[in-house]
């Protein structure tokens, strides 16, 4: 039997394939080289919307096979339906590896599949490799990034969820002679125990998606007021980035908890993180120390944020930020 790496081709609410699927495909090409060039397959669960476009995207991005489960019931994501489709397919094709994006959906779907198959799943990985023995080595941060662990799986398939935006998409085209296979999508005997009754798109979130932003301008208690956060928004807009906040700022109601970065908020890995008036307690830094470049502005030269900053400016955010915004606007 041909060995396969199976990737869950997650789509968004408009039924478009997510970028993380393409990132996983690129990583899988590398893994495949160490696994006798095994096949890379996608599972696409669809109600038929955008089907041709999605098939084309998968064809252009390195998938040898695409398994399609189509049913009008698949208009909205449902964990029970989708996990059943995936489990039936996995039982049939016995893939070596199953990869799923570590999105809110992926992080619900993956453990349901793995626990029903009684196989191992490594959560929220930042790196994938193949060991000398041909096993998947999944690397993940634990304790808020203070420690990395390489995790292996005793059973098959070896499963992992992988953080979006961590793996790189290759620049060269990876068009394949893709085989499209329709699979059984009957879910009539499955009880639907969760129903979506409403959805409110969060305009603030869609405007600047903090999880995906390449630049984050974050504020702490030192921003003092909602007006202070308007400055951050202005700077983020000029730079094409998102606004983030520390827990201190959220607790003072200066910012919404949906943009909180840190232990009880989000873990972000932007290219640039500009920390304004953030002292840099460990609870905050565990959520952002993975940023490629950290710029910190703080009045207190002893603020712990300076210990992890690439560039630290001891100064007043209310003097520096307006001038910075002005200078950046002039340069554009």
């Amino acid at each position: 039997m041909t060995r396969e790496i199976l990737i869950y081709a997650q789509t968004n609410r408009e039924h478009k394939i997510l970028n993380v699927v393409l990132e996983l495909s690129c990583a899988a090409q590398e893994l495949s080289k160490k696994l006798d060039n095994c096949i890379i397959a996608a599972l696409l669960v669809t109600d038929g919307t955008n089907l041709e476009q999605n098939k084309n995207i998968l064809k252009q991005n390195g998938f040898d096979k695409v398994y399609i489960a189509q049913n009008t019931e698949f208009k909205n994501y449902n964990t029970k339906y989708y996990s059943n489709i995936a489990i039936n397919l996995i039982n049939e094709i016995n893939p070596e590896i199953v990869l799923i994006g570590a999105t809110t959906q992926g992080r619900e779907l993956a453990p349901v599949i793995s626990s029903r198959l009684n196989t191992g799943l490594t959560a929220d990985c930042t790196g994938l490799d193949i060991s000398d023995e041909g096993k998947l080595v999944a690397t993940r941060p634990t304790f808020g990034g203070n420690l990395m662990a390489n995790i292996l799986c005793k059973n098959y398939p070896q499963m992992a969820t992988v953080r979006p935006k961590v793996l790189k998409i290759s620049d060269y085209p990876l068009e394949k002679n893709t085989e499209f296979i329709t699979i059984n999508s009957d879910i009539s005997n499955i009880e639907k125990d969760v129903e979506i009754v409403d959805f409110i798109p969060n305009i603030q979130l869609t405007d600047f998606r903090i999880d995906e932003a390449e630049i984050i301008v974050a504020g702490g208690k030192g921003m003092k007021s909602k007006e202070g956060f308007k400055l951050l928004k202005e700077l983020a807009d000029v730079l094409g980035g998102s606004v983030g906040a520390s827990r201190g700022a959220v607790d003072l109601k200066l910012a919404d908890s949906s943009i909180q970065v840190g232990q009880t908020g989000k873990t972000v890995m932007p290219k640039t993180y500009i920390a304004c008036g953030i002292s840099g307690a460990i609870q905050h830094t565990v959520g952002m120390s993975g940023a490629e470049k950290i710029i910190a502005i703080n009045k207190d030269k002893n603020a712990p944020i300076f210990k992890i900053a690439d560039v630290g400016i001891v100064g007043d955010v209310f003097e520096i930020l307006p001038k910075l915004i002005e200078s950046l606007k002039e340069r554009r």
Binding site: S114, N118, T119, G120, L121, T122, S131, V137, P141, T142, G145, N146, L147, M148, A149, N150, I151, L152, C153, K154, N155, S289, I294, K301, F306, K307, I308, A309, D310, V311, G312, I313, V314
Partner: peptide, 21 residues
């Protein structure tokens, strides 16, 4: 448990740059 930790390591401390006063 189907998974096991094969190696645990501290990530590289890449930060700690210049501070301007």
């Amino acid at each position: 448990s189907p998974t096991y930790v094969s190696k645990a390591f501290r990530p590289e401390q890449k930060h700690g740059g210049e501070i301007f006063e």
